Amino acid sequence: MAVAKRLLLQLHVVIAVAFLLDGAAGLRMAIMRTECLTEEVANEGDIVTGSFVVLDHQSAWAEQHPGMDLGVTGPGNNHVYSTRWKVEDKFSFRALKPGPYKFCFTNHAPAPKSVIFQVHVGHTISPEEIAKAEHFDPLALQIGKVSEALALVVQEQAYLRAREERHRITNESTSRRVVFYSFIETAGIVTASLLQVFFLRRLFEKRGKRVSV
């Protein structure tokens, strides 16, 4: 019954996160060069899923250095997953060993970048665990599956929220650029018109003096 109780508690926690928090926001970080985080995996075979979204990639300096690198290493510093120059990405892998897994972001731009990162370690009860459990309720296995499914839904909601925020920042940045360039263009037209008026007046004044002489 201990396994069933643990699964019920896990289900209650996930439901609370899904409905009370209205979707997780993820961990927001400002990365200058390299930043690493560690997530503990308790069991061999656990599924590790996650995502990240770079928010301010549309700034002037970021256009020449788009995206960010992510490298994941497992126990013993073994390579697990990597991606380069991405403004957003989702990943999933099966942990071959229990222990700490390190997630390292690398920013190649000369200024900090903001990134929203989230990771989830999912565990499904194996047949061996079911066989070892005394008085195991078959519904506990289904509860575990529902719990993991809800956790993935919450994670996907957080990823979509981060993408929505990135698109909003992009639209605002584009709007500011349009206004700025429109102002520069208008100022240029006004300046050119004033110069034309000035030179035309000078030209007519010179011609008027010649005629009077």
Rank of each mutant, 00 (worst) to 15 (best):
V3S: 08
V3M: 08
V3D: 10
A4G: 13
A4R: 12
L8M: 13
Q10C: 01
V13K: 07
V14M: 07
F19K: 09
L20K: 02
L20V: 00
A25Y: 05
A25V: 03
G26E: 05
L27E: 14
L27C: 05
R28H: 04
I31L: 01
I31T: 00
I31Q: 00
M32A: 12
R33S: 10
T34G: 05
T34W: 02
E35S: 11
C36W: 00
L37H: 12
T38M: 02
E40C: 00
V41A: 06
T49A: 10
T49H: 01
T49G: 00
T49V: 14
G50F: 09
S51D: 04
V54L: 12
L55W: 05
D56W: 02
D56I: 06
H57F: 05
S59R: 11
A60K: 14
A62N: 15
E63V: 09
E63T: 10
P66I: 04
P66Y: 08
D69K: 14
L70F: 10
G71I: 14
T73N: 13
T73Y: 14
T73I: 13
G74I: 11
P75F: 13
G76P: 03
G76K: 12
N78T: 09
H79L: 15
V80E: 15
S82I: 01
T83V: 15
R84W: 04
W85V: 15
V87Y: 07
V87I: 13
E88P: 03
E88L: 12
E88I: 02
F91H: 10
F93H: 04
R94Y: 07
A95F: 11
A95D: 07
P98D: 10
P98F: 07
G99I: 03
Y101T: 04
F105W: 08
H108M: 06
H108I: 02
A109W: 10
A111N: 13
P112R: 07
P112E: 07
K113Q: 12
V115L: 14
V115E: 10
I116L: 06
V119E: 07
H120Y: 14
V121E: 11
G122L: 15
H123K: 06
S126E: 03
E128M: 04
I130E: 14
I130R: 14
K132G: 00
K132Y: 00
P138Q: 02
P138V: 01
L141H: 10
L141Q: 11
L141K: 11
I143W: 04
S147E: 11
E148Y: 01
A149R: 01
L150T: 02
L152S: 06
L152Y: 00
Q155T: 11
A162M: 01
R163F: 01
R163I: 06
E165G: 00
E165I: 03
R166D: 01
R166A: 15
V178K: 02
F180R: 15
Y181W: 10
S182F: 00
I184R: 07
I184G: 00
E185K: 01
E185D: 09
A187W: 09
G188F: 08
I189C: 06
V190G: 03
T191R: 03
A192N: 05
S193N: 09
Q196H: 12
V197E: 10
F198H: 15
F198D: 12
L200F: 09
L200K: 08
R201L: 12
R201T: 14
R202D: 07
L203V: 02
F204Q: 05
K206D: 04
G208S: 13
V211K: 13
